[in-house]
């Protein structure tokens, strides 16, 4: 297929993947943040600072005061000038979908288009005044609808493989960044009595934020503290939003898309990463070790990203220009 089309599909997948993950994160953390910090270590907390760090949306070093809940919310949900905001991602995704309208099914196109229209309506009607819940819920539902329609109505061909590849690499990178932020402040050293509950709280917030609390409860018997949660989100292949599951799915998608996948650089790199995750899964799960793994995985994913654009998009991502929504 055309490299340009493949490229658009890949980015459509990424944009929607990012919109959905951001919406989930905002929704999960917002409810927790309204209340006082928990008195039990199993409670949840994740600061808005942490969230900004995940999104890399601002330059933290220049900030002198703590970010305000409403400000972060606006920045990450509806700020059209922030290319990572939910609104901007949806807008960009919809532009991409327009380009590939003939490749994706009509229903998928409608799902994306309605999502964009709906967001503007929510945004313009001031639906935010009484809280972001419905706005974010709408994004989650529409994204799920889009992916569901892709399963049901789209030919299982190269095009679908690139769409999925985009969605999965975005999911993997988002979750890795979230985990790094949640674990990072506490570093390698063994957390003391004060720090430990805080870190555990962040881990629980992450589970809320990716919508994985229920799955975690069913799959893991340990309490939802930092290490078990990070291990789960990183290694648990049975959980579809874990890093390992996303890496595998990305690998599968590229194998399907690439006629000569056995010699393809991104495919080989992903196969190594997948095996590596399986190997490390059995090793130590101290916070420090997990952080080291997360760093490696993030680097590898960046290289995979590079490999993909090199091999399939004729290196197109290197020549970019700013497109405003």
């Amino acid at each position: 297929m055309l490299a340009r089309i493949a490229h658009e599909l890949f980015w459509l997948g990424r944009q929607l993947g990012r919109a959905e993950h951001t919406a989930r994160m905002l929704d999960g953390i917002y409810a927790i943040d309204l209340q006082a910090p928990p008195d039990a270590p199993v409670g949840a907390q994740l600061t808005w600072e942490g969230l900004l760090a995940v999104m890399g949306a601002t330059d933290e070093s220049e900030r002198t005061e703590a970010p305000d809940r409403d400000e972060v919310m606006r920045l990450l949900a509806v700020d059209a000038n922030n290319p990572s905001s939910v609104l901007a991602c949806v807008e960009a995704g919809r532009e991409g979908a327009r380009v590939v309208r003939d490749v994706i099914s009509a229903e998928m196109w409608e799902a994306v288009n309605t999502l964009r229209l709906g967001l503007y309506q929510h945004h313009l009607s001031g639906g935010f005044g009484t809280g972001p819940y419905e706005f974010l819920q709408y994004v989650k539902e529409r994204c799920a609808l889009f992916w569901g329609l892709a399963e049901r109505t789209m030919l299982e061909d190269e095009a679908r493989a690139f769409l999925h590849a985009g969605g999965r690499i975005e999911a993997a990178q988002m979750v890795v960044r979230m985990l790094r932020v949640a674990l990072a402040p506490f570093g390698d050293e063994v957390a003391d009595e004060v720090e430990r509950p805080a870190r555990d709280g962040q881990a629980l917030a992450l589970l809320h934020a990716v919508g994985g609390l229920h799955a975690f409860r069913r799959a893991v018997t340990d309490p939802p503290n930092a290490e078990p949660v990070a291990g789960f989100l990183l290694y648990e292949r049975a959980y579809p939003d874990s890093v390992a599951a996303s890496v595998d799915a990305l690998h599968t998608a590229l194998v399907a898309a690439d006629a000569r996948s056995r010699t393809a650089a991104p495919v080989l790199r992903l196969a190594r990463l997948s095996a590596d995750l399986e190997f490390r899964r059995r090793a130590s799960r101290s916070a420090g070790d997990l952080l080291a793994v997360l760093g490696d995985v993030q680097d590898e994913l960046a290289l995979v990203d590079h490999d993909i654009s090199d091999r399939y998009f004729a290196g197109g991502t290197q020549a970019s220009r700013v497109m405003t929504a």
């Binding site: 490229h7 760090a53 991409g96 960044r177």
Partner: peptide, 22 residues
């Protein structure tokens, strides 16, 4: 609400999502 003491976190780089041109 009071914020916990800030610690230096290095935000991981975000991949550029802007559309590349052809």
């Amino acid at each position: 609400r009071p914020l916990p003491p800030r610690r230096a976190t290095v935000p991981p780089p975000l991949p550029d999502l802007r559309q590349s041109s052809w």
